[in-house]
Amino acid sequence: MPISFTVNGEERSVDVNPGTPLLWVLRDELRLTGTKFGCGIAQCGACTIHLDGMTRRSCVTPISMAEGSDITTIEGLEGPEADAVQAAWRAIDVPQCGYCQSGQIMTATSLLQQIASPSDEDIDNAMAGNICRCATYVRIRQAIHDAAKTLEG
C-alpha cells in the first residue's frame, strides 16, 4: 500500500515497509540527504524534521505515521524564522563538521516560531536534544539570539 504525504510542498508517495523510519524514506527513497542519521533512537537530533509544523525525530517515526502529513526537511525550510536562523548561522560560522547542523537549524527555527525572543534557558531546553560533537554550542546559542534580534527588526 503506497503511503502518501507532502514533503517540502510536493506530494510524494512511497511503497515501502510501513515500519520504515521516515529518515530512511527521506534519504534512501527521496534522496533528501540533508536529514542525517546519528543514533537511530532519538538521542541526538541529527534527523530532526518538521511534521505538521512541529519538530520530529525522523529516525523514530514510522513512515505509516506520515500518511497525509506535511513534512518539511532542511532542503525545504523557509519563512522568516528559517531565513533569520540560517543567516545567523552563516554570519558567525556556527558549523564545524556540519553533520548535526541540519537538525540544529530545524529545532532552532521551530523554537523561534514559538518564542520570538527566547532566553538562554529557552534555548537550552529546546536544543537539549540536539547533540553537537564538535561542541559548537556557544555559537548555536549566539546565533539563535542574533536571529531573534533580526526578526524583531
Partner: peptide, 14 residues
C-alpha cells in the same frame, strides 16, 4: 515539554 522539543518530538502515537 519545551518549545522546539515537545514530548511528541520523539514520542509518536504508538
Amino acid at each position: 515539554g519545551a518549545a522546539g522539543m515537545n514530548c511528541t518530538t520523539c514520542h509518536g502515537p504508538e
